[in-house]
């Protein structure tokens, strides 16, 4: 089994240049990037203000989670972390069955991510590099599904799930999101540029079947984009709220559902709720700190309009 990538270049995910309306692509993407004037002091001041605004609510989650409720609701409100973080975390853990919720969230987000990566890469490859009847129309259909909000189908979905015995089970949350239109589009855009026809041709000359080509040529070439899509999908699945909140119940929740129920309980203790919020957010923040650059690049690349 040859596992070496046939593509030696492109070790890092470089966002493909968005399709300019004028049809100008490639070339000196970095240098030709709009005005490359230097930012002045005003620019930095404005960015610091916006940056603080972006971070502060998260910081304050930590602050509120580390005091007792009395102090949190006092005026003036606390601005520095207190000493009750650990006991609040413990209380939240016990009150909302967060242990089970974390396991559930990992299972749900993990399954969705793995399946999305596999199916979206396959479909993206087909749409980018294979020729078949109805390709354009089918791709348009894929994009069109993005405009349908989940609200339109939750009622029958709930009935279907209880009908097939998935009511309240994780399957009911996993299966509807196994493969998404955004992922298909994202992989297609990437493979259009990153996978040269010559490589596919060479493999065909060697007599490789299509599925072998996928395994030996497409997957290695798609790996950088898959990394990014994987993180974006994981973030989305981890944070999903509407459908899981309707489909799952208190006994078997994901983290977000447990958090919603914790706060919806009879007079919730706010600092314990904040401790729960902290637990549900920390894993993703960690991912963000480590892979922020790739996620930013991925969103910018995914912004390309077809």
């Amino acid at each position: 089994m040859t596992t070496t990538s046939p593509i030696k270049t492109a070790p890092d995910f470089v966002p493909a240049p968005p399709a300019a309306p004028a049809g100008k692509r490639g070339g000196r993407f970095k240098l030709g990037a709009g005005q490359q004037l230097k930012g002045g002091p005003f620019t930095y001041v404005a960015l610091i203000v916006v940056g603080l605004g972006s971070i502060f609510p998260l910081y304050w989650t930590l602050v509120a989670a580390s005091h007792d409720q009395q102090r949190v609701l006092d005026s003036p409100p606390p601005l520095l972390p207190g000493g009750r973080l650990w006991s609040n975390l413990q209380a939240a853990w016990e009150q909302a069955h967060l242990g089970k919720a974390i396991v559930n969230s990992v299972i749900v987000a993990g399954c969705i991510t793995v399946a999305t990566l596999f199916f979206c890469t396959l479909a993206g490859y087909a749409f980018a590099k294979m020729r078949f009847r109805g390709r354009g129309a089918l791709m348009t259909a894929v994009i069109a599904t993005l405009t349908i909000p989940p609200q339109l189908s939750v009622v029958p979905l709930f009935m279907m799930m209880s009908d097939i015995g998935w009511g309240g089970k994780l399957e009911s949350v996993i299966f509807p999101t196994l493969v998404g239109a955004f992922g298909v589009f994202f992989m297609r855009q990437y493979l259009l540029e990153a996978l040269p026809y010559e490589l596919i041709e060479a493999a065909k000359v060697d007599g490789a079947s299509n599925i072998r080509i996928v395994w030996n040529v497409v997957l290695p070439a798609a790996r950088p984009a898959m990394m990014v899509l994987g993180m974006l999908t994981f973030v989305q699945a981890w944070n999903d709220f509407f459908w899981p909140f309707l489909a799952l119940n208190q006994e078997n929740p994901t983290l977000q559902v447990a958090l919603g129920q914790l706060s919806a309980s009879y007079t919730p203790d706010q600092s314990i709720v904040m401790a729960g919020a902290l637990i549900s957010t920390l894993p993703l923040l960690l991912v963000f700190v480590i892979f922020g650059k790739q996620i930013v690049g991925g969103i910018m690349a995914g912004a390309v309009k077809g």
Binding site: V235, G260, S263, A277
Partner: peptide
């Protein structure tokens, strides 16, 4: 602003994106 040539441009981009990593539930509760 981000399109200007900046020091630590990736850092700024990541910072303004952190709310995106926060779930609806967490954001709403804070």
């Amino acid at each position: 602003l981000l399109n200007y040539k900046l020091r630590a441009s990736t850092f700024w981009r990541t910072v303004i994106l952190t709310p995106y990593a926060t779930s609806v539930a967490t954001a709403a509760l804070v």
